[in-house]
Computed example of a mutant assay.
Amino acid sequence: MPDADWAEFSFDGIGTRWEVATPLPLAPALRSRLLERVEKFDAGWSRFRSDSLVGAMAHSPGRYSFPAEAAALGTLYRTLYGLTGGAMTPLVGGSLERLGYGPAYTLQPSGPPMPAPRWEDVLDWDGTAISTRAPVVLDIGAAGKGLLVDLLAAELATAGEKDFLVDGSGDLLACGSRRVAVALEHPYNPAQAIGVLDLRGRALCASAANRRSWGDGLHHVLDGTTGRPVRTAVATWALADTAMEADALATALFFVPGQVLRDAFNFSWLTVYSDGTADHSAEFEGTLFT
Score class of each variant (00 low, 15 high):
residue 136 V to W: 01
residue 192 Q to I: 00
residue 21 A to Y: 07
residue 174 A to T: 08
residue 281 S to I: 00
residue 259 Q to V: 09
residue 248 A to R: 04
residue 75 T to V: 04
residue 243 A to Y: 04
residue 70 A to Q: 08
residue 246 A to H: 10
residue 22 T to A: 04
residue 57 M to R: 03
residue 149 V to E: 02
residue 254 F to K: 01
residue 11 F to C: 07
residue 239 L to P: 05
residue 55 G to I: 13
residue 173 L to M: 04
residue 172 L to S: 13
residue 176 G to D: 05
residue 59 H to I: 00
residue 168 G to A: 15
residue 109 P to E: 14
residue 248 A to C: 09
residue 11 F to W: 05
residue 253 L to W: 00
residue 259 Q to N: 08
residue 46 S to A: 13
residue 183 A to F: 10
residue 263 D to S: 14
residue 260 V to K: 01
residue 64 Y to H: 06
residue 281 S to G: 13
residue 162 K to C: 08
residue 242 T to S: 15
residue 127 G to H: 06
residue 24 L to P: 00
residue 122 V to R: 01
residue 206 A to H: 05
residue 120 E to R: 05
residue 162 K to F: 09
residue 222 L to R: 11
residue 264 A to Q: 09
residue 172 L to Y: 04
residue 69 E to A: 10
residue 79 T to R: 02
residue 152 L to F: 04
residue 75 T to Y: 01
residue 270 L to E: 01
residue 271 T to A: 11
residue 227 G to I: 06
residue 105 Y to Q: 14
residue 193 A to T: 00
residue 169 S to W: 07
residue 163 D to H: 08
residue 203 A to D: 08
residue 83 L to A: 03
residue 239 L to F: 12
residue 77 Y to F: 15
residue 82 G to N: 12
residue 57 M to V: 15
residue 169 S to Q: 14
residue 214 W to D: 08
residue 269 W to L: 07
residue 267 F to V: 00
residue 182 V to K: 08
residue 220 H to V: 04
residue 214 W to C: 10
residue 12 D to W: 01
residue 45 W to N: 13
residue 62 G to W: 04
residue 208 A to V: 02
residue 48 F to I: 01
residue 264 A to P: 00
residue 134 A to D: 07
residue 234 V to I: 15
residue 83 L to K: 01
residue 212 R to C: 06
residue 177 S to R: 07
residue 50 S to F: 02
residue 47 R to E: 02
residue 191 A to W: 10
residue 20 V to Q: 08
residue 31 R to L: 00
residue 55 G to R: 07
residue 230 V to Q: 13
residue 212 R to W: 06
residue 60 S to H: 12
residue 193 A to M: 03
residue 288 L to K: 01
residue 77 Y to N: 14
residue 73 L to I: 09
residue 49 R to L: 15
residue 92 V to Q: 02
residue 225 T to A: 10
residue 5 D to R: 08
residue 58 A to M: 10
residue 230 V to Y: 06
residue 85 G to Q: 05
residue 147 L to E: 10
residue 278 A to S: 12
residue 252 A to M: 11
residue 74 G to N: 09
residue 67 P to L: 12
residue 18 W to D: 10
